[in-house]
């Protein structure tokens, strides 16, 4: 009985603070959207980078630069010739 009462008061609090006024409802929807789109973007990026670890530019860049012998120096020499 006690838990039911507390549950009721929880939903009452939610109703009174969010759904009762249209202004608070709309504000909650937009605030939720703003937070969700940032966190969703963040989470998907983290998953993608973790899923493709070893294939991303930031991972292969040191190996490619080492293989090309330092990158730009050769190009500059070619330009001078």
């Amino acid at each position: 009985m006690t838990s039911r009462t507390s549950e009721f008061s929880f939903y009452t609090k939610i109703y009174n603070s969010i759904f009762k006024r249209n202004s608070t409802f709309v504000a909650t929807v937009f605030a939720g959207t703003f937070i969700f789109q940032a966190s969703f973007d963040s989470a998907i990026t983290r998953w993608y980078e973790n899923h493709n670890k070893g294939k991303l530019w930031k991972d292969i860049k040191p190996a490619i630069l080492a293989r090309n012998g330092g990158g730009d120096e050769d190009a500059d020499e070619d330009d001078d010739e």
């Binding site: 006024r21 202004s23 608070t24 709309v26 504000a27 937009f30 959207t33 703003f34 789109q37």
Partner: peptide
């Protein structure tokens, strides 16, 4: 009070679409 709350809602709406 209602105007303040609508102002806040408007700010969040602007924030959503200018993200």
């Amino acid at each position: 009070p209602d105007l303040i709350l609508w102002g806040g809602a408007g700010l969040f709406a602007v924030a959503t679409f200018t993200d």
